[in-house]
Amino acid sequence: MPGNPIDILISRAGLRGSAVQTMYDYYMGVFGLDMPIWKQYLNFWTSLFQGDLGISIYLFPTPVTDVIMKAVPYDLALLIPSVLLSWIVGNNFGAFAARSKRLDNTLLPFSYILSATPYMWLGILLAWAFCIVFRIFPLAGGYSFAMRPNLSFAFIGSLFSHWVLPFLSLFIVQLGGWAIGMRNMIIYELEADYSNYLKALGAPNKLIRKYAFNNGILPQITGLALKLGEVVAGALATEVVFAYPGIGYLILQAIHNEDYFLLQGCFLFIIIGVLMANFIIDIVYLLVDPRMRAGMQGETA
């Protein structure tokens, strides 16, 4: 990253004369930036293994870990419900659409439009509609600027009303993709040999659809793991649109202020998060696909 974050810090403080040089030397020392590059690099790794991500330049003197920890609850509250709910609703929606031609013809184009919508564009549209035109939801922030965090109903209500729009914009865009994927899977499964065999033996459609859903959902679980990385990026754009105080918003601030300690911390956090989610999904896959379970146990007969 070109440029020197300390210059920004100094210029923001509005110092003059010799104080500039004094403060500059002080900050360079505090952040360890006066050392040779290789030593800075070594320092980065040593402190990383001690769980220390350094001190944020932009929010000096808060440690980066504290800054991130403050933002994480917002992210989790935004991402987990939107990812899981859109997955569940989208899959059911898609399976429902695969039932008949008429449903398919009406719901499918709609889903394609949804899934092709950029997160931020939908975010801006929602913000315009619900904040400016109808004035139902607040426009920016994680909670009302007039409040301080406390455990009261008013504060929780404020949290909720600030949460709705970012959540909706993530939820709606992902919904379309899942619905399309599931619709295709169900149609494929309903044409599979085992479905035809059951039909020929007079099994009711209910049973055949149930099997198709159970088998069609398996690739969707893999898809969920792949989609997570993309969702994190989508959350970044959404958080920027709504100035929602999650990791995405932090990243934008860190870039503006050339705060590479914070930026590194955020990226590290996201990477670990995505890897962990993938790991969890791998384990879930083992639980839901009986063939894998049978494979792990080896020969039984």
């Binding site: 040999d193 035809n196 065999y197 020929a200 099997y211 696909d289 009986p290």
Partner: peptide
């Protein structure tokens, strides 16, 4: 059926 090899639901 002709496709007896794939006639059974693989996940049941």
């Amino acid at each position: 059926p002709q496709y007896a090899m794939n006639a059974m639901n693989p996940t049941r």
